[in-house]
Amino acid sequence: MGKSNSKLKPEVVEELTRKTYFTEKEVQQWYKGFIKDCPSGQLDAAGFQKIYKQFFPFGDPTKFATFVFNVFDENKDGRIEFSEFIQALSVTSRGTLDEKLRWAFKLYDLDNDGYITRNEMLDIVDAIYQMVGNTVELPEEENTPEKRVDRIFAMMDKNADGKLTLQEFQEGSKADPSIVQALSLYDGLV
């Protein structure tokens, strides 16, 4: 993909415009910024974590950033290329609610087996709590990752089998306004 070129080839721009919710001009602008920050044309896990640390200076986002990195890194080569970056950004910032929920499901399904187990969710929720640090005051019933996961599973795990399917996750998330709101945070920002 033209590693350190400051412009993408027209056919690449066209393809990314088809695969995302961005215009050709927006794709070019994002590429310019991506190459400025990642001259090699790729972003590794350490660089990704560094970006998260800028956004969450009062907590430790390392663990959460690693989980997000793994979802962005579609081809699992340990690096995020621009096409992976822009497609994930498109879903998280401008995707439909169902697209965002499928993306979030992939984030929580750490072993990619098609289910979110209690332990997988606990890993992610714990990482989120570490990331936000003491900057967020949580209600008593959610002031630990374990309590939050218990509440989520009580609401979403309809067949009580200890794991969530994509359908259970989507339906449960849509029924909880706070989850829908959290997924909409990026709307309109890009």
Score class of each variant (00 low, 15 high):
K3C: 15
K3A: 15
S4I: 05
S4D: 04
N5Y: 14
N5L: 07
K9F: 12
P10I: 14
V12W: 07
V12R: 04
V13P: 01
V13R: 14
E14C: 05
R18N: 02
T20I: 15
T20F: 13
F22V: 14
E24T: 02
K25F: 13
V27S: 15
Q28R: 07
Q28C: 02
Q28A: 10
Q29K: 15
Q29F: 13
W30L: 07
W30N: 01
K32I: 13
F34A: 06
K36Q: 01
C38H: 10
P39F: 10
P39M: 10
L43A: 01
A46F: 01
G47C: 06
F48R: 02
F48Y: 13
K50I: 05
I51S: 08
Q54V: 00
F55M: 04
P57I: 12
F58P: 02
F58D: 11
F58I: 01
G59L: 09
T62R: 14
K63Y: 01
N70G: 12
V71G: 04
D77H: 09
G78D: 06
I80L: 08
F82M: 06
S83P: 11
E84Y: 15
I86M: 01
Q87A: 02
A88L: 06
S90M: 00
V91I: 06
T92M: 07
G95I: 13
G95Y: 00
G95C: 04
G95W: 08
G95S: 15
T96E: 09
T96F: 05
L97Q: 10
K100F: 15
W103C: 04
W103S: 03
W103Y: 15
F105V: 10
F105T: 01
F105Y: 08
K106C: 03
L110T: 00
D113L: 06
D113N: 09
T117G: 00
R118G: 09
D123V: 05
V125H: 06
A127C: 02
M131A: 05
N134Q: 05
E137C: 07
P139H: 13
E142H: 11
E142S: 09
T144E: 03
T144C: 03
P145F: 08
E146C: 01
K147E: 12
K147Q: 04
V149T: 01
I152P: 01
F153N: 02
M155I: 12
M156S: 03
K158N: 06
K158Y: 08
N159C: 00
A160Q: 04
G162Y: 15
T165I: 07
Q167C: 00
Q170T: 04
Q170A: 09
E171M: 01
S173K: 00
K174S: 09
A175P: 01
I179G: 05
V180D: 10
A182E: 12
A182F: 07
L183G: 11
Y186E: 07
G188M: 01
V190P: 13
